[in-house]
């Protein structure tokens, strides 16, 4: 189950990692819920009160970008990023291990660069304002470096499992009802 995916190990490091995962998960849940509620509320507003909340579009768009980037690290743990494993599968274990290591390293470097560039673009655009809410235009951008940093941290903590392709197995939603269908 998603919320108990990394059982708290007794070690401090383990507990910290678990807390980090939980925090990240909570953030995604909040962002998704808020997006859905705001856009739906806007539809209702338009019919009931004959006017819409004009900042909803801009605000939820920012949240969507944050979901995309802040969810990427968790998606990595669950092996949700589509990749082509065919060549790896055809290789002997030693070579496969080496290639997985190389991929993890390349990804870490890429993410590190993205953190730096993302902070720079957020800084560069901070004085601009978003059209509807007048927020710093760098704020939506900030989701990218924060997400990349979180993903980098996930990758570092999850390195061994990532290399071994030992992804976190989550029960897909709806599986609990599957057996019922056999009846």
């Amino acid at each position: 189950m998603a919320f108990s995916e990394s059982p708290a190990r007794p070690s401090l490091a383990g507990r910290l990692e678990h807390g980090f995962v939980r925090l990240n998960q909570a953030l995604i849940v909040l962002l998704m819920a808020s997006m859905a509620i705001l856009v739906f509320a806007n539809v209702v507003m338009r019919y009931v009160f004959n006017q819409s909340i004009f900042w909803v579009e801009e605000f939820t768009q920012i949240q969507m970008i944050w979901v995309a980037y802040l969810g990427a690290g968790l998606a990595l743990r669950e092996g949700r990023h589509v990749a082509v494993d065919m060549l790896q599968d055809a290789l002997p274990a030693g070579l496969r291990h080496a290639i997985r290591w190389f991929i993890a390293l390349a990804m870490a470097l890429f993410l590190l660069t993205l953190v730096v560039l993302g902070v720079q673009i957020a800084e560069f655009t901070w004085n601009q304002e978003t059209p509807a809410m007048g927020l710093p235009a760098g704020l939506p951008y900030l989701g990218i470096p924060l997400g990349a940093a979180a993903m980098l941290l996930h990758l570092l903590l999850f390195w061994r499992q990532f290399v071994a392709r030992d992804f976190v197995q989550v029960e897909e939603i709806g599986d609990d009802h599957a057996e019922e269908a056999h009846a």
Binding site: R46, N50, Q51, S52, F54, W55, E57, E58, P131, A132, G134
Partner: peptide
């Protein structure tokens, strides 16, 4: 009247000053 505007406060102010409601 319900008038579509681009999501911009200027146009919101404009449309509302004319007695219509603005929808971005």
């Amino acid at each position: 009247m319900k008038i579509r505007i681009q999501p911009s406060p200027v146009f919101k102010a404009l449309v509302e000053s004319l007695g219509a409601s603005a929808s971005a």
